[in-house]
């Protein structure tokens, strides 16, 4: 199954990434870009209270990040939040790309948008680790679903 053509409704995961890259291209100064990112973080859905426990804290993030994935109708839905605003913004981007997708799509999709919108160069390595830890958590969860189904 081709990851780019698998969604039934709405944009494909590839289209979503392309759209996100376009959105960020609209800003020509770094402050606007961060303000937009921060705004996205502020508009993240509330993290389910029942998951706000130490076992759902991601290790490898210097800010505090809570992360959990749920399976719904063959798709993985992720919830995540951070106490840092910019990290929450990055979470919003990750969820937009990866949440609500099938495990196959998730595993097949490289996070090209990170470099494309300049987050790769602009974020400190420690926060990069947080981003890396979140990506790994998303993909590990998807891979575990595929392994269980195999």
């Amino acid at each position: 199954m081709d990851a780019a053509t698998s969604t039934v409704n709405g944009p494909s995961i590839a289209e979503e990434q392309a759209e996100l890259i376009d959105e960020f291209a609209f800003f020509d100064d770094w402050m606007q870009r961060y303000e937009y990112l921060i705004d996205l973080g502020r508009r993240l859905p509330a993290f389910p209270e029942e998951y706000r426990r130490d076992e759902f804290k991601l290790k490898g993030c210097q800010s505090q990040v809570w992360f959990v994935g749920e399976k719904r109708d063959g798709r993985l839905v992720f919830h995540a939040i951070s106490d840092a605003a910019i990290v929450s913004g990055i979470i919003a981007l990750l969820l937009r790309i990866y949440s609500g997708r099938t495990p196959t799509e998730i595993v097949a999709t490289e996070p090209d948008f990170i470099a494309a919108i300049g987050l790769d160069a602009h974020l400190s390595p420690t926060r990069k680790n947080g981003l890396g830890a979140m990506l790994k958590a998303i993909r590990d969860r998807a891979q575990a679903e595929l392994d269980a189904a195999a």
Binding site: I38, Q62, A84
Partner: peptide, 11 residues
């Protein structure tokens, strides 16, 4: 958050 502070002052 301190991480947000560090990111913005780094810029």
């Amino acid at each position: 958050h301190p991480h947000d502070i560090a990111t913005i002052v780094d810029r």
